[in-house]
């Protein structure tokens, strides 16, 4: 188990290093000098040079890369070109919206998908299965941001159960914050839940055809007992893969959904940074998103080992 975890950890570090290189050098090829962009066309050469020195833009590329990575490791993401405030602070503020939103959606999606998938697999070919499959077919086809607009139309504008947008913040406790994230989380979660339920169902159906399921029935387990005791845990292996992948979709989706609900999250930050060419902010947000995805997939790899004893002893 320890050997397996170490191996995964090593691969995680390599992925992070390569990802940071890719991001840094893609942004490096960007045309235009941030310093002249910040000061405008009429800037004096000496003020320009001073700003470039202040931002570290006059150093060789590899030194700047090392400084950037080194800074991130110590929590220093640099200074925003446009706002002249630490990027780390700006990101931290927004992260308190985007991350809870993604996690909220992931939880909802899993809570909906597991029972739906198991229910459909247990009633394969029967009306219950058909209904679930039909609903998921529709759910998979829903663009989450459009679904979000429809939710706003129905639940905020017509029924007035929720506010149409904005974020209540966490300062008044958990509930007001959660409430303002509920509609966004549902909009994010339902399409993903549809995918996950389909994966759960087909993974279970595969497992139901396995020899050991017949063995379980020969022992005297009912169909339902066999499904729960022997099917679900084995089906978790493919399902975990999808959950890991979904996290990156949810993070990306959260950025889009924030636009629908006017949430002050990473999405707002990054789109404003793009339009003002605040590349250091873009760079840092992208690195953070990629970091989150890689770390979640590392966690999924560890979860595999918890589910599947074959991984623990091999390699």
């Amino acid at each position: 188990m320890l050997r397996y975890s170490l191996k995964r950890l090593l691969s995680l570090l390599v992925s992070l290093a390569v990802a940071s290189l890719v991001i840094f050098f893609v942004v490096e090829v960007a045309p235009g000098d941030p310093a002249s962009f910040m000061l405008g066309v009429n800037a004096q050469p000496d003020t320009l040079a001073a700003l470039r020195a202040e931002l570290g833009l006059d150093l060789p590329k590899w030194q700047r890369y090392l400084a950037w990575v080194g800074g991130m490791l110590t929590g220093d993401f640099g200074t925003s070109y446009t706002y002249r405030t630490p990027v780390a602070q700006m990101i931290a503020d927004r992260l308190w919206v985007s991350l809870p939103l993604a996690l909220y959606a992931l939880t909802l999606s899993t809570l909906i998908a597991f029972p739906a998938g198991i229910y459909a697999a247990a009633r394969r070919g029967k009306p219950g299965d058909m209904a679930v499959m039909g609903a998921t077919q529709l759910g998979v086809a829903l663009p989450n941001f459009w679904f979000a607009m429809m939710m706003v139309l129905v639940f905020a504008i017509n029924l007035r159960w929720f506010s149409a947008g904005g974020f209540a913040g966490w300062q008044d406790g958990l509930l007001p914050g959660l409430k303002s994230l509920t509609l966004p989380a549902i909009s994010l979660a339902l399409p993903q839940a549809a995918i996950l339920a389909r994966v759960m169902r087909s993974a279970l159906l595969d497992i139901l055809g396995e020899d050991f399921m017949r063995t379980a029935r020969a022992k005297g387990l009912t169909r339902r007992q066999a499904l729960w005791r022997h099917g679900v845990r084995n089906a978790l292996i493919p399902v975990l893969t999808i959950i890991g992948l979904q996290f990156s979709f949810l993070l990306a989706g959260a950025i889009i959904i924030e636009q629908v609900f006017y949430l002050p999250g990473l999405g707002r930050l990054v789109f404003r940074a793009i339009s003002s060419r605040d590349l250091i902010v873009v760079e840092s947000v992208v690195m953070l998103l990629v970091f989150a995805v890689i770390v979640v997939n590392f966690a999924v790899d560890l979860a595999y080992a918890a589910v599947d004893p074959r991984l623990r002893t091999r390699t």
Binding site: D211, T215, A218, G220, H230, N234
Partner: peptide
């Protein structure tokens, strides 16, 4: 209630007849 108690069964493929987890 009968299966496993009154009738037991052994299958052909021992490699796949057991739950791997």
């Amino acid at each position: 209630a009968l299966r496993g108690r009154e009738i037991g069964m052994v299958f052909q493929e021992p490699m796949t007849a057991l739950n791997p987890v």
